[in-house]
Amino acid sequence: MKPTFVALATCAFLAACGGDVFNVEEEDTDSGTDTETDTGTPIDSDRTIPPGTASPSPQVAIFRSEPTSTEDGKQGNGFATGISYDSQNDTFTVDNLGFDGDNTYSRGTAVSSLGPYAVYEADAQFPDTVTQNPINQFTHRAIYGVSTSGNTQFAIVRTGAYVDYGFGGFVYQRDNSVTLPSTGQALFTGNLAGMRDYRGRGGLEYTTADITIAIDFDDFNDATGTRGDAVRGHISNRVIYDTAGNDITSNVLGRINAEENINLTALPNANFVVGPNVMDENGEIVGSINSYYVNSSGDTEVFEEGNYYAILSGDNADEIVGVVVMESTIDPTADSVRETGGFIVYN
C-alpha cells in the first residue's frame, strides 16, 4: 500500500511561504544552550536547545536548526543551510550539501507528499561544466511542512548515499508569538512525516505516523518560579516506505523478527519521557523519546531512543511545530538506523 500523495495547491496550503522561509545562516549565533542574556525566563536545567534564535522570548519568532556534530558517524549533522521555498515554482533550495545538483530540489515524482507535508528531491544527474557529460548525484530528499495558519514550519533534509548517516539537517520555526496558559491542560493532534537513514550502509526511506501531544500547564512546579509544564507525546500508526512509495514496513519488521526471534506485527509506539523542566516561558519544548519491545525472553527492551524538539505558537497556544530524532540498533542490516520526523499538531 502506498501513502496518500495529496498534491498541495500552488500556495493555498503553503501560504505566506515564498522566499527565504528558513534564514539559518544569518541568525545562527546561539551556542545551543540557554544563557542569562536571553530575553524571557528560560528554565535553569541541563537541557540543550538546538542553535538558532539567540534571544528568544514569547513575543518573538523563533527558529532552531540541527546542531553540527563531531560525534562518530554523525559528522554531517546540521550541514544543510540556506533552506528556502519558492512557492511560485514549487521548488526547494538547500545549500552546503555535496552532489545535490544545482541546490534546487523539485517536487517529488514517485512520492510528492507524505500526508499534509510536501516532498522534494534533488537532481539525479548534473552536467559536467565543460563537457556536459552527466554526473550522477547523491540521493537527497527534503520534507517541508507549514501549518494551516502559516505560523509554523519545518524542513528536513537527508541522504542515504553515505556509509555513515551523511550530510543533512533539519530546521523548525515559529513565525509569530505565543501566549502560554498558566492553568489547565491541552491536547494537540496531527501527523508526522520523516526519513530513515542508516549508519553502516546506505539507504533512505520515508516514514509517516500519527502524533498526539498533551500539556499540563499547572504542573510540574518549579522551585525557582519558572515554568515546569509537563508534556507527554505519543507516536502511533507508524509506516515505512521506500523512495518509490512502496510500504516496506513488513519487510523491515520481518528481518528484525528473524534476527531477534520475536513477532512484531507493527512498529512500536514511541512516547515522550514525562518529567519536569521540558518547556520554558518562550514556548520551547525539549525532551527525550523512547519506544520499547518485548524480547524473546519476555523482557522489555529499548527499541529506539532519542529526543524531540518543539515550539508552541499562537495567541491561544493552539499549534506546535517540532522534530523528533530517534535511533535504533536492532536492525540486523546496519549498525544503527535513524528516523528524523517533523510534525505540526493542533489544539
Rank of each mutant, 00 (worst) to 15 (best):
Q75E: 15
Y198G: 03
V21E: 12
V325N: 10
S297L: 10
D34K: 03
S112K: 11
Q173E: 07
Y105V: 03
G98H: 11
S106V: 04
T265G: 12
N237W: 10
R227M: 02
A122K: 09
Y162F: 15
N191A: 13
G40A: 13
A310H: 05
N96T: 11
A61P: 11
V337A: 13
F126R: 05
Y241E: 08
Q173W: 00
N269F: 05
G190L: 04
S57R: 03
A334I: 00
V325G: 06
V111S: 12
D315I: 05
Y144N: 09
T10K: 12
T35H: 09
G194P: 11
G160H: 14
V178C: 06
V24E: 15
G203H: 06
F272P: 02
G166L: 06
N261R: 10
V231G: 06
T131K: 00
S45E: 08
S112A: 14
D299V: 05
I256Q: 09
G200W: 04
V24A: 13
V324Y: 10
I320S: 00
V324T: 13
G202F: 04
D34Y: 09
R232A: 13
D280E: 14
I320P: 00
D219M: 04
Y105S: 03
Y293S: 02
G233Y: 06
Y172E: 01
E284C: 01
D123C: 01
D197K: 09
T148L: 07
G341I: 03
Y144S: 07
I135E: 08
T81D: 15
S149K: 08
F217M: 01
S250M: 13
F13K: 11
E27R: 06
C11W: 09
Q173H: 00
T91F: 05
N96L: 11
A193H: 06
D44S: 11
Y144T: 07
D331I: 04
D299Q: 14
T224F: 05
R201D: 02
I215K: 02
N133S: 11
V146S: 12
S291F: 05
S296P: 04
S69A: 12
S288H: 08
V119I: 12
P50Q: 06
